[in-house]
Design a protein around this nucleic acid. Sequence first.
DNA 1: ATTGTAAGGAACGCGAGCGTTCTTTATCCT
DNA 2: AGGATAAAGAACGCTCGCGTTCCTTACAAT
Lengths: 191, 191
Amino acid sequence: MVVGQTRRRGDVLVGAIYAAVLDELAESGYAGLSIERVAERAQTGKASIYRRWPSRLELALDTIDHTLPQLDELPDTGSTRDDVLIVMERIASVMRSPSGDAVRACFSPGADRELADAVRERLLAPRKAAMLEILRRGVARGEVRADAISARIAELGPTLLHGELLHRGQLTDDAVVEIVDEVVLPLLRRR
Amino acid sequence: MVVGQTRRRGDVLVGAIYAAVLDELAESGYAGLSIERVAERAQTGKASIYRRWPSRLELALDTIDHTLPQLDELPDTGSTRDDVLIVMERIASVMRSPSGDAVRACFSPGADRELADAVRERLLAPRKAAMLEILRRGVARGEVRADAISARIAELGPTLLHGELLHRGQLTDDAVVEIVDEVVLPLLRRR
DNA sequence: ATTGTAAGGAACGCGAGCGTTCTTTATCCT
DNA sequence: AGGATAAAGAACGCTCGCGTTCCTTACAAT
């Protein structure tokens, strides 16, 4: 117990556990995620964790599900560049956070395939759909060529943000703007 | 001991250990890499490993250094598309192999920063330099616009291969060709 | 053929984490 | 206020890997 005689229950406790899992995932990866350390970090007992989740996998999955920022409503500024930039900056800020590390941990060798698949579907897919919708609006406006509507193009931006983080170890706002202006947008325009 | 009374020494033994480390890295990631399992997999004793490497980190690093295919000589077909395709296909085939998983394992949360930095420098940097050289030749021929000579453009191809693997869980030859023709080459041409 | 070296293995005590059980007691509900 | 619930935490026996030591014996060099 940490402070005086306080004893947390329900959502407050669950929230603290999520936070601990997130930090552990970011720090040690999925292979190194131990219930024991999660409990210690969240200042609770292992029993309170085992009571709620049957396995490490469920715990990790639930944590990511409940921790990632909700998808805000799509920007619709009337400018494809602005829309893309806004979405890319949102994605970048998640990638820079512990949540980003946690997600990356799910895709590394040593992690569970099931976990990776679940994260792909529940998490990456909706974000990809958002990007496609922005592209569609751009096509309607005549700013974007019609055959830019493809999975590969929708993934391009996020993929490059990820690559930037891997190659340089950091992801600055300037880099986000450069990626959008020098790579993503040129590929959207008519040739 | 595996076969009759054979006892391996020197380079043969070291090679078997490298192979085992590679498989373990691919299977369990860096966080899950244990000397005990490496020894078992290589059919040797732990002592033979501890005699040669002081730590897990050195072992992993040495393994990657000695296992990755050497950089072949640069293709120089006279066509930028062909040169890029050849290099991209080489990179793809490494990414698909256990070596690829092992390298990815070095960059995941839970792995050592030092390891990641070393791999970046010794491994990624020379490959990036190769791609830049190809671009330079393309510029000399007038096929490639001059300001495509940049780190970000050189990384673009490999980054997309990596992304393809993460998003789809596989990396087909068709995908490699599509990435080159639909993303990389269009960005190299004059506008 | 003899001898030095190191490979293959078994065993050591140690610590970390497993998943479970049990006790005490703070907190919530009526 | 009183009772039901579940949180905090200690302890259980267990497995896995650690890094080291030791012994036997195959191999290479002379």
